[in-house]
């Protein structure tokens, strides 16, 4: 079943067109990788999908599970099951990681008509999920991302994904800033979250991540459009040949 359908998406930032007719279909259970050179619009796509202000959609549509995603606020998207793992997770001094996640999970559970979790049940849940990304329990009670290393922040993103159990997870440059060990841990966490009723869209510059999280489909974004789609092999070709030949094709 189609989970996400992006049709002819045009989006601008401060009047400058970034996405110029992007189309993409994602089915439940699939893992897609969107690759592309710097400035091709990868992060813009992630931001538009998550509902960030400052991105103006000038044309096209995004339908998520039959709903008009663009008409929804960021929190409505989150409650309906869209999750963005940030490229640069925000540090929030004074807001405890556990409290934030508990408030988030319970907001989502309320939306789904499920009972809220009490403190004891929530703590049990988060400790179990923390093992998934080998995150030290000490980090749970710290302020959100405050003083976390790059790797710890990315682990924290995947931990949040594990707790919130989204239907659609967008991973924005989740591999950036990770050393090889941290990459392995994060990728392993993501792989354990692959499910037949969940779709994952990875946005990445390098194919390195794809060695650890093997996608079903690879798309190349250049000049604001998807210029080529293929399987896992396409990423390998990109690694060998770079992006220039595709940019020329796009132009």
């Amino acid at each position: 079943m189609t989970m996400l359908s992006i049709r002819n998406l045009h989006a601008a930032v401060e009047g400058k067109a970034i996405l110029k007719g992007l189309s993409l279909e994602v089915m439940a259970g699939e893992v897609h990788a969107i690759m592309g050179p710097n400035g091709s619009g990868k992060s813009t796509l992630a931001h538009v999908l998550s509902g960030r202000e400052g991105y103006e959609v000038t044309e096209g549509s995004i339908v998520f599970e039959g709903k008009d995603l663009l008409a929804m606020s960021p929190e409505e998207r989150a409650r309906d099951g869209v999750f963005l793992a940030f490229q640069y997770p925000v540090e929030i001094p004074g807001v405890n990681n556990v409290y934030m996640l508990k408030a988030a999970l319970n907001a989502i559970r309320r939306h789904r008509g499920e009972p809220e979790l009490d403190a004891v049940d929530f703590l049990r849940l988060i400790k179990e999920k923390a093992m998934l990304v080998q995150m030290d329990e000490r980090f749970l009670s710290r302020a959100v991302n405050e003083g976390f290393s790059g790797g710890e922040k990315k682990r924290n993103e995947i931990l949040q994904m594990a707790v919130l159990e989204p239907k659609l997870a967008l991973l924005d440059e989740t591999d950036s800033g990770l050393d090889i060990d941290a990459l392995r841990v994060v990728a392993n966490g993501v792989n354990q979250l692959r499910r037949s009723d969940r779709a994952i869209v990875m946005i990445t510059h390098y194919q390195r991540l794809l060695e650890h999280i093997v996608p079903d489909f690879v798309h190349v974004l250049a000049g604001g459009r998807i210029v080529r789609s293929g399987g896992r092999d396409l990423a390998v070709t990109l690694e060998e040949r770079g992006y220039d030949w595709l940019k020329e094709e796009a132009a």
Binding site: E53, S73, E75, R79, I92, M100, A104, A107, H111
Partner: peptide
């Protein structure tokens, strides 16, 4: 902090709660 606000909302908290 607008970035922090968006971050919390993207996790499901409504704007006033964030």
């Amino acid at each position: 902090d607008e970035d922090a606000l968006f971050y919390l909302r993207s996790r499901g908290l409504d704007e006033s709660a964030a």
